[in-house]
Write a protein that binds this DNA or RNA. Sequence first.
DNA 1: GTCTATAAGGGGATAGAC
DNA 2: GTCTATCCCCTTATAGAC
Lengths: 205, 205
Amino acid sequence: MARTPAPGTRERILATASRLFYAHGVRAVGMNRIISEAGTGKNLLYQHFTTKDDLVAGYLGRVRERRVDAIHRALDAAGDDPRDRLVALVGELGDLVTRTGSRGCAFRNYLVEFPDDSPAGSTDGADTSVGAGTPATLAREHLAEVRAVIDGLVGELGTDDPDRLADELCLVVDGLFMQAAHRDPDGLRRGADTAVRLTRRLVGA
Amino acid sequence: MARTPAPGTRERILATASRLFYAHGVRAVGMNRIISEAGTGKNLLYQHFTTKDDLVAGYLGRVRERRVDAIHRALDAAGDDPRDRLVALVGELGDLVTRTGSRGCAFRNYLVEFPDDSPAGSTDGADTSVGAGTPATLAREHLAEVRAVIDGLVGELGTDDPDRLADELCLVVDGLFMQAAHRDPDGLRRGADTAVRLTRRLVGA
DNA sequence: GTCTATAAGGGGATAGAC
DNA sequence: GTCTATCCCCTTATAGAC
């Protein structure tokens, strides 16, 4: 059988595509450019990803794994206090946004770029199994995933109005990512610090 | 001379283009669709807007005028207290985001869609005269404009660290607009309420 | 003359075939 | 890998209608 002649090929394609999609936007990057920069043949790419949407889904899935891992590492490092864990969560996302070359959140950016793909209110019989859907559903699933983490931690806090606090923290996180689109590195640094400071105040840490 | 045979044409084109660009994204809408939905000839469109970038600039300029007007009306209606005016500013933007069919901020969305056009840190000898530049400069100009309004109002407050408060309010505003990309109408309503409530708390009103 | 409708040019898109 | 097919993009040019 030996069905995988070059095990690194898929990952190399995915890494190249991810870098380009994230840096320039999904619509701005064509398959030709990915093929030429990945140094692979066109046949091989379409063998691993039958369509561009598949490749985009692979891109978002890859970012998602890394994002989830990074979040859980940050949470674990923060200890057991849900207050500290919430601050660590926002701090981790702040670090992500202030990294050089950062262009914010891959998922939110995708949804801005493709507003017509399964819009916010729709539940059109989509494949609800995690990780198998379209790019848009993948993006929304991840956002819901993070929201669930926030809800869980806020719930542990035992405050009067947990939904209210969770909404506030989500607003801060969204603001953090939106600023990546238009603020310079200095402003981003200050934006991330602001997000962490605000989080600290909101959770009462 | 009588150089303007049909005075309403330009505005009709601009209205159609604005609706389509805002709803579906700039890249997703082609000139053909604008022409067909505006009911005008292709020649006439290119007579008023020599290139698609011109049309996009016209779109953003149009949104900008209306946005600035709406902001100033809201500020005037709020009275003289800078606290009330800041709350009114965020409230106005919240209303904008919760309107049916809203897709958030046209300027921020454009910058997400075209990250390579005059990126955040660049000051490549662009035309700095207001309203005459490329879409990207137009977008950045408007964001700076609103930031200046916030800075001014925060300055009137006479707090210890005005830059800090202004950063916090900008984070809230950015979060408000980012949520338009991925929250459903119910979530958006709560997000807007959260933004106003948070603003009230931050400015001490 | 003013506008519409249509075709064509030049490029690049996805995707498939050899 | 290259080559082709098909389509859509922006833009210009031409031809026809009022």
